[in-house]
Amino acid sequence: MTEPASAETASVRNPSARLIDGKAFAANLTQDIAREVRAFHDRHQVTPGLAVVLVGNDPASEVYVRNKALQTHRTGMRSFMHMLPETTSQAELLALVGRLNHDPEIHGILVQLPLPAGLDPIAITNAIRPDKDVDGLGEVNAGRLALGQPGLVPCTPLGCLMLLKAELGELRGLHAVVIGASNLVGRPMARLLLAEGCTVTVAHIDTRDPAALARQADILVVATGCNGLVRADWIKPGATVIDVGITRISLPNGKTRLVGDVAFDEAVTRAGRITPVPGGVGPMTIACLLNNTLAAARRIVGGAA
């Protein structure tokens, strides 16, 4: 498999595909959130609070959680970190979630996934109060999304949708193909696109010819965790490609590099617009987490979305 080139190299070789700058979009969104946090505090004398729970010592999760805390503080919100040992039991974790549910200073709760073996992520996620479920993964918020009712939406799909609307404007009538059917990204992404009036096709591990489906897409969202899966001949010329995947690969020189689920150096020659990895979807996930925390505080304190 041809190793994907970096966004910078590919954009120099072929400037025809517009790079969707998620980092810049997320920075602007975060600035807007910071202004809204100040206004919220002036109105209610309350500072939104986000509690993040990390169980175990996964290095990638630790870095991600620290970045969340940093961004939370930058918006003027309060960050409450709970770093638990890998030996934490299901009962102990549920007890902590219960305390956070009843803490008036906490408006958003996120339990970082994946959890260590022996802990049930579904039970833990569903134990979070729906109005504090800022990851949007609990059964109540998932059900609201499925029924087209207001609720807290999973952060990564929400970030993808924001980028798509900023780039394309009206999405109604476009054919969107989502490759990947996880509860974290694929399924909620499909529901969000359906709510925007798109015709939506979902491809997954058992789909017989995902490439044929992908070639029909005006919008192609890829979230599989398989680096370089989508090649140029999967992409309809001029399509908008959102690459959610991110994998760290080793290079011959001993260094490492982050790549996505799309073979970027090929895809950039066919797509009309494309998110790079890194710098595309990733920054939007944390920005949307902060957006959800503010929305949760508004509902809890102010009684409005």
Results as ranks from 00 to 15, higher is better:
E3I: 15
E3K: 05
T9Y: 08
T9C: 07
N14V: 05
L19R: 06
I20S: 00
T30M: 11
Q31C: 13
A39K: 12
H44C: 07
P48A: 04
L50W: 09
V53L: 03
S61I: 00
V63H: 01
K68M: 10
G76M: 07
M77K: 13
S79E: 09
S79I: 09
M83D: 15
M83C: 09
P85E: 11
T87N: 13
S89L: 07
A91D: 14
L94P: 00
A95T: 10
V97M: 03
G98I: 05
H102R: 15
I109Q: 09
V111R: 05
L113V: 07
L115H: 09
P116C: 02
G118M: 08
L119H: 00
P121H: 13
I122H: 10
T125Y: 05
T125G: 05
T125E: 08
N126M: 03
A127Y: 12
A127T: 14
I128H: 05
R129K: 11
R129H: 15
R129P: 00
E139D: 13
N141G: 13
N141D: 09
R144F: 04
A146L: 15
G148C: 06
P150G: 01
P150D: 12
V153W: 12
L161G: 00
L161M: 08
M162I: 03
K165L: 02
A166T: 13
H175K: 11
A176D: 01
I179V: 15
I179H: 03
G180C: 11
A181M: 07
N183H: 14
N183R: 13
L184H: 05
P188Y: 10
A195G: 15
A212Y: 03
A212V: 08
L213A: 15
R215F: 08
V222Q: 07
T224N: 09
G225Q: 07
N227L: 09
L229C: 10
V230S: 01
A232Q: 10
P237S: 12
A239S: 09
D243W: 09
I246T: 15
R248A: 07
I249P: 12
P252V: 06
G254L: 11
T256S: 14
G260A: 04
D261L: 11
V262N: 01
V262W: 02
V262L: 14
F264H: 06
V268W: 07
V268N: 05
T269D: 14
T275A: 06
P278H: 02
G282S: 12
T285W: 04
L290E: 01
R299F: 02
G303W: 04
A304V: 15
